[in-house]
Design a protein around this nucleic acid. Structure first.
Lengths: 260, 260
DNA sequence: AGCTTTTCATGAACCGGATTCATAATCCGA
DNA sequence: TCGGATTATGAATCCGGTTCATGAAAAGCT
């Protein structure tokens, strides 16, 4: 039976290789130019072999999305481990999203495409289930944060249960990603640092929900401080350019000086 | 030269016919099953004729999206004409979006698909420009609302200019549409009436931004009253089912009684 | 080991659907 | 009515995802 296990392991390994290669090709040539034949070539396997793993191209894409999501979970998982205020913990979840997707925009593009019903509908039921299962844990993290917020009195026990409560932040973050990736639209309205604005609005929203401690006033300085703090304490990283305040001096150059 | 004009008119008419038919086919069979050959058949024209109007399938889809957006503008246009408080005017914009997209979910699906870079990138530059141009007017409506809000003192002149200010509501609404259309995700977390929650969160957000008159408390009764008011006064329609409060009695049946 | 059976990789062939283009039809001015 | 210009047509082409007959390798058996 040991052989069977080895076989299985090798199979799984090959699947990862295929996914890695898919990721690379997408990163290099774009989703549009991903072709099964080329992918097979790049993997050094025959086309038929790919189909041993993924019954349809859609399944491949969905599987990659799921894997990406799971790897994002690693960042999310730092949040429950961090002992900060519940309000900032929730913001940290949104921040995690921004950190990853700012670095790998193709990840969002792919996800957006895959969740389109054209693709989602064509994918196999198993892969879909797999994707949904991958989403589950994040729900628990959110539940915990809200429950703790209620327990500590950071949040008044209002009408809404945890998930509906945080649906606002979630939708706001998701929506901002969509807008950022809808080519041309934000430029049209002269919006420069959408993700920084996201945190303005998230704080307004949380203030509106009465999530203690309120941020007042919501201004550039407080936002900068908050982002600094979260990036450092939770994710052990610098604040990325997309979250810096708009600097009137440097237009196209990314500004080099850190926030004081 | 009169002939030329007639020709032109007939050509435009035919383009509208093609778009109408496309809409119908998508509505009936779904985006996935839209085929140029079938479309040609349904239009009673040859395939080649379609290509006289749209160089690629992507162009056809983008054009349809643009047209849909323009027709949504008709609803948006009722908003500046309505003399209510600025805060409710902004909410009315979001409501317009919900009213249309709840009735024609395929519209959103299509738009979502088209703005995916796979499609957007494949469409021709002219059609893309056309789409962006169609988005422009909504910006003006928003600007006007914010400016009037500032003038009336409904909004404190903070750091943010009009569009960044309302980006929050916009992203929140967009994000909620995305979540609603991401099959299975909201079910996963037991969320029943996402669009009703949207208005909870929009009001929280606006409260947080200090947009007068504040809604306090944000509860089911106030939300119901607000939605009733806006649907009636601005759009002259009943509150659609997706915006009614969750009724614990009727689970699968849409509740028949109106809100008191 | 030698033989049989099972499993799996292969890639040429297939097929569906978007796009093209040579041809036919139609229009229009003279 | 005629001839050149314009436009419509749909069969043919092309492209890329998917299948499947073939043979090779591994596993099982004696």
């Amino acid at each position: 039976m040991a052989t069977l296990a080895r076989r299985r392991r090798e199979f799984d390994q090959r699947e990862q290789l295929i996914l890695d290669t898919t990721q690379e090709l997408i990163q290099r040539d774009g989703l549009l130019n991903l072709q099964m034949t080329r992918l097979a070539e790049a993997c050094d396997y025959a086309v038929g072999t790919l189909y041993q793993h993924f019954a349809k191209k859609e399944d491949l894409l969905l599987a990659l999305t799921t894997r990406n999501f799971l790897s994002r979970m690693e960042l999310f998982d730092r949040v429950p481990a961090w002992p900060g205020p519940t309000r900032e913990r929730l913001l940290a979840l949104c921040l995690a999203d921004v950190l990853v997707l700012d670095q790998y925009p193709e990840m969002f593009r792919l996800a957006q495409f895959v969740f389109t019903d054209v693709v989602w509908g064509a994918a196999s039921a198993e892969r879909r289930q797999e994707a949904l299962t991958a989403c589950q844990p994040i729900g628990d993290v959110v539940d915990d944060i809200v429950n703790e917020a209620l327990a500590r009195g950071d949040l008044q026990p209002g009408a809404l249960s945890p998930m509906p409560m945080t649906l606002g932040s979630w939708a706001l973050t998701t929506g901002m990603h969509s807008l950022v990736h809808t080519e041309g639209v934000l430029d049209l309205y002269g919006i420069r640092r959408p993700y920084r604005l996201l945190f303005h609005h998230l704080n307004h929203l949380l203030n509106g929900q009465g999530w203690q401690p309120l941020m007042a006033p919501v201004d550039e300085a407080s936002i900068s401080a908050q982002l600094e703090r979260l990036c450092r304490d939770v994710f052990d990283t610098k604040v990325p350019a997309c979250l810096l305040p708009v600097d009137p001096d440097t237009e196209s150059e990314p500004s080099k000086e850190a926030i004081p």
